[in-house]
Write a protein that binds this DNA or RNA. Sequence first.
DNA 1: CTTCCAATTTTTGGATCCAAGTGTCAATAT
DNA 2: ATATTGACACTTGGATCCAAAAATTGGAAG
Lengths: 227, 227
Amino acid sequence: MKVKATDIAQMASASDVIFDALRAAIAKGDIAEGQTLRQDHIARMFNVSRIPVREALTRLEEQGLVSTQRYRGAVVTTLSTEEIREIFEFRALLEPEVLRFSVERISEEGLEAAKRFAHAFATETDSSHWGELNRSFHYSLYEASGRPYFLQTISAALDRVDRYLRAQLVLTDGMARARREHEGILLACIRRDAEEAAALTRQHILGACVSLIDFLDRTRAADDTPD
Amino acid sequence: MKVKATDIAQMASASDVIFDALRAAIAKGDIAEGQTLRQDHIARMFNVSRIPVREALTRLEEQGLVSTQRYRGAVVTTLSTEEIREIFEFRALLEPEVLRFSVERISEEGLEAAKRFAHAFATETDSSHWGELNRSFHYSLYEASGRPYFLQTISAALDRVDRYLRAQLVLTDGMARARREHEGILLACIRRDAEEAAALTRQHILGACVSLIDFLDRTRAADDTPD
DNA sequence: CTTCCAATTTTTGGATCCAAGTGTCAATAT
DNA sequence: ATATTGACACTTGGATCCAAAAATTGGAAG
């Protein structure tokens, strides 16, 4: 055995583990918006001191997932409707462009993988998996683009709105529409029609945005007037 | 005086100061590529312990300005030609879009400010200020876009390539061309011709990219064969 | 009952200390 | 002369400890 573990994957330090766990929890919506993350509390959860926790929180803040005020702790960021709209606008600009690159380069195996994710997404009955499968489908297509920086940026943008997106999938007709639209995107990719695939992706994102904001307007209005 | 300092700008903690200083130093190219940043060394420079230094380095890594290997310290990231090309491609997609939004919204005062930066850039003789003035000119135009997330993302991308960009301005004919191109962009903005301004910005970025990569190919080839 | 203020409790940012991993270089064996 | 090994110094990730800032509590005054 020539290849050591450290060559393939750097052994994860405590702060890496905490960072990933918190990031996933925020993306999935397991940690409520506006909730304060107490360093000591998290430290006890992971059986470590506060030092690696602080490092993880620092990274989360750099990613925009929490916002910190000096001596007042880290709070899961609440995005305004405008901020959400901007991030979707951002995705609607980047993702079609990435897909254009991918369509030119993706292999048959890559298309097969995307097809499997689309199928898994369409047939999954446990709604808690929808968000993950949705993301996997799109990423499986984007990965062939050979644009790591684009992917990383898209990923960061998606992390910020993931919990809203998941809610929109589950609590509206988002799932049914996403299923149809994925089908269309996939077929365009198989036909190697980059422009069509890009246009459909753009519509897919902007459509989800409209639906999500409509949904948020209703729920947030209801929250503000609970009487 | 009703407004306290803490209301406008959160009092900077030690790690903030260190982070900003290191980020600026890397962007300006004051810290050489590939150089290892020793926690203890930086800590002594700022008269603090290693804890806030580690926080700053963590944030720099999250921004992609340094890369860390467990127990081996933080090294200023060296970008390959391909990575640089991708980041310019990224900017060439985002910045024209942001400028489109700006042109619709920018005030006369905003245009005046941009004009002043363009003039300052064109007449500055100290080449060490060119990079900063170049950035100020573009930002003064982008700020009116009302797209904070776009701006933040562009800023992060620019931080990664800033030191290369500065070298290209100073060590090639980049400065002369940038001056002309700024003029064109500015005039298009004043005419409120969003499409023209966007197209010129895209050319401005892609042109700089070609010039920079050509420059890097020559210098790096020379570095690799120093005999 | 409400409002204000001081004392106490939390909680954070940072300093110091410790264990574990890495790099170096001289001594030894081939 | 070159490759191997092992001791030692260096550096990092993390634990523990401390001071300062914030939140909270409880009582006194209106």
